[in-house]
Computed example of a mutant assay.
Amino acid sequence: MSALLSATAPRTFDDARRWVAEGTSLFFDRIGSLSPSDWSDASSLPGWTRSHLVGHVCANAEALGNLISWAATGVEKRMYASVEQRNADIERASGLPADELTAWFSRSADALDAAMDELTEEQWRHEIITAQGITRPASDVPWMRAREVLVHAVDLAAGTTFADLPEDFLVALGQEIRTKRGLSDEELAAVSGPLPDVVAWLAGRPHSLIDAPELGPWL
């Protein structure tokens, strides 16, 4: 599977919009399968319950909506007012009832999707700045959202694994992460296994690979 992650075929804008739709549906299905008591259980992300994680994904939709507004109007609108506010909002969300979090997820995802539908081709080319301070075209926002809903659907620890994610998404994600980590083709080729496990390893998530070197945090 390493050859797939060494390829240079770019993901497309339409790919990203499709992955957002698939990831939103998958994430919604996963939280819908949880009982009220399940929400306070640990997610697979250190220090976060499932409620923390869902609150983060909801807030992310609204934050990306700020970037879409920026692209539409030309008026700067950052994702978050500050790191401190972002963290405080997630902590507050972790105490909300399951039904409120579920409704917030649905509402925020629908609002983001509707806002993206309204952008013109020219507006998609407008520059925005991510929470990491990186300047990117607004057309990268769907990819940013696709990563959130699909990867965090796995992080819910509610039965979904990387093997359940679209293969073309895994290829695109794996290519991006290996580039960010600066892994050479030789280093990647030394790790052999199924594509979902290789991408999980690259993303710093649990995997079943043998003798794969430990990687630091990603995203």
Rank of each mutant, 00 (worst) to 15 (best):
Glu62Leu: 13
Glu62Cys: 02
Glu62Gln: 08
Glu62His: 06
Glu62Lys: 09
Ala63His: 07
Ala63Gly: 11
Ala63Arg: 07
Leu64Glu: 14
Leu64Gly: 03
Asn66Gln: 09
Leu67Thr: 12
Ile68Leu: 15
Trp70Asp: 08
Trp70Thr: 09
Ala71Glu: 02
Ala71Trp: 00
Ala72Leu: 10
Ala72Asn: 10
Ala72Trp: 04
Ala72Met: 08
Gly74Ala: 03
Val75Ile: 13
Val75Glu: 14
Lys77Arg: 15
Lys77Met: 14
Lys77Ala: 15
Arg78Ile: 07
Met79Asp: 03
Met79Asn: 05
Tyr80Ser: 04
Tyr80Met: 06
Ala81Gly: 06
Ala81Gln: 11
Ala81Phe: 06
Glu84Ile: 06
Arg86His: 04
Arg86Met: 04
Ala88Trp: 03
Ala88Glu: 13
Ile90Phe: 04
Ile90Leu: 04
Glu91Ala: 15
Glu91Asn: 04
Arg92Tyr: 04
Ala93Ser: 14
Ser94Phe: 00
Ser94Arg: 14
Ser94Asp: 04
Ser94Gly: 06
Gly95Trp: 06
Gly95Glu: 10
Leu96Ala: 15
Pro97Val: 11
Asp99Trp: 07
Leu101Val: 08
Ala103Arg: 12
Ala103Ser: 13
Ala103Gly: 04
Trp104Ile: 02
Trp104Val: 02
Phe105Val: 10
Phe105Lys: 07
Phe105Thr: 07
Phe105Ser: 08
Phe105Gly: 10
Ser106Gly: 10
Ser106Phe: 03
Arg107Pro: 00
Ser108Gln: 12
Ser108Pro: 01
Ala109His: 05
Asp110Tyr: 02
Leu112Asp: 02
Leu112Lys: 05
Leu112Phe: 01
Leu112Arg: 07
Ala114Cys: 00
Ala114Asp: 10
Ala115Lys: 12
Met116Phe: 07
Met116Asn: 08
Glu118Pro: 02
Leu119Cys: 10
Leu119Thr: 12
Leu119Gln: 11
Thr120Tyr: 08
Thr120Arg: 09
Glu121Gly: 07
Glu122Gly: 09
Glu122Asn: 09
Glu122Asp: 14
Trp124Leu: 15
Trp124Gln: 13
Arg125Val: 10
Arg125Gly: 13
Arg125Glu: 15
His126Ala: 15
His126Trp: 03
Ile128Thr: 09
Ile129Leu: 11
Thr130Pro: 07
Ala131His: 12
Ala131Ser: 15
Ala131Pro: 06
Gly133Trp: 01
Ile134Met: 14
Arg136Tyr: 05
Arg136His: 09
Ala138Val: 01
Ser139Asp: 14
Asp140Asn: 10
Asp140Thr: 14
Val141Tyr: 03
Pro142Phe: 00
Arg145Cys: 01
Arg145Lys: 09
Ala146Tyr: 00
Glu148Ala: 03
Val149Trp: 03
Val151Asn: 05
Val151Ile: 15
Val151Gly: 10
His152Gly: 01
His152Thr: 00
Ala153Pro: 01
Val154Ile: 08
Asp155Pro: 00
Leu156Ser: 09
Gly159Tyr: 01
Thr160Cys: 07
Thr160Leu: 00
Phe162Cys: 03
Phe162Lys: 00
Ala163Trp: 02
Pro166Ser: 11
Pro166Arg: 11
